[in-house]
Structure formats: structure tokens, C-alpha cells
């Protein structure tokens, strides 16, 4: 699971979706919050965490890695 979002902190700005190099994320049309659309394409680079302006994004490693 590449991104785990703290929905209480997330402001729905979609910067993580905009910048994810692997095009892993998209915005959930209902909740307006980011979700993992292609979780198996994640390189765990951590760009989502760095780009998040409010510290709502956490990265989770795929189970094969840790």
C-alpha cells in the first residue's frame, strides 16, 4: 500500500496526485481525497509525503519489501 492518508488532516489539494511519478494515485470522486489506484506501481520514492503541505500523507511499503 503506497499511500496512507490521514483524512482528518488532508485538505484535498491533490498535490500528491499531481506529482506522484508513477501515476499511482487518483482523487476519489466521492470523498475528494487521494486513493491508491495502481498500488503495485509504487516505487516507494516518498514524493507524496514530501509534497503534502499538511503532513497528511504517510507511505506504506509493499508487503514484499518489509
Amino acid at each position: 500500500m503506497p499511500i496512507k492518508v490521514d483524512v482528518k488532516k488532508c485538505i484535498g489539494c491533490s498535490r500528491c496526485v499531481r506529482e506522484c511519478p508513477g501515476d499511482v494515485l487518483c482523487m476519489d470522486p466521492k470523498t475528494k481525497r487521494p486513493i491508491n489506484k495502481y498500488k503495485n506501481d509504487c516505487w516507494y520514492c516518498g514524493v507524496c509525503v514530501i509534497e503534502c503541505p499538511v503532513g497528511a500523507a504517510e507511505m506504506e511499503f509493499p508487503i514484499l519489501i518489509v
Binding site: 503495485n40 516505487w43 514484499l64
Partner: peptide
Amino acid sequence: GYLFGTFDCPY
């Protein structure tokens, strides 16, 4: 065994 767990950028 993870396809995108490569050293260099998999993209």
C-alpha cells in the same frame, strides 16, 4: 518479487 522494487527508477 515486487515488480516495481527496482534499484533504478522503474518508470
